[in-house]
Amino acid sequence: MKILIKVNDNPLEWEKNMTIDTILKKMKYSFKMLVVKVNGELVKKSEFGNFIIPEEADVKVIHLISGG
């Protein structure tokens, strides 16, 4: 059976050794300035390539866009 994670409440299939970079690519999130939380924990940009996403993770990605 497929294991799913949630990315901004959208289901995405979990893969072994999945990282935040994997998710951003799959979701086609191309903005540069992002704040990412995995199960409520803030993940810094320097960790995007090696933070391993656990099964059934709740991932939130916020796009920060200039303008104010």
Partner: peptide, 28 residues
Amino acid sequence: DKAVMKKMLIEKWISLFPDKPVICASGL
């Protein structure tokens, strides 16, 4: 105004004061 400043502020505030809300704006 600048996204890089928004990100800095949000990440620092969350780590300093996880129990205090921060209300941001993005995309206007």
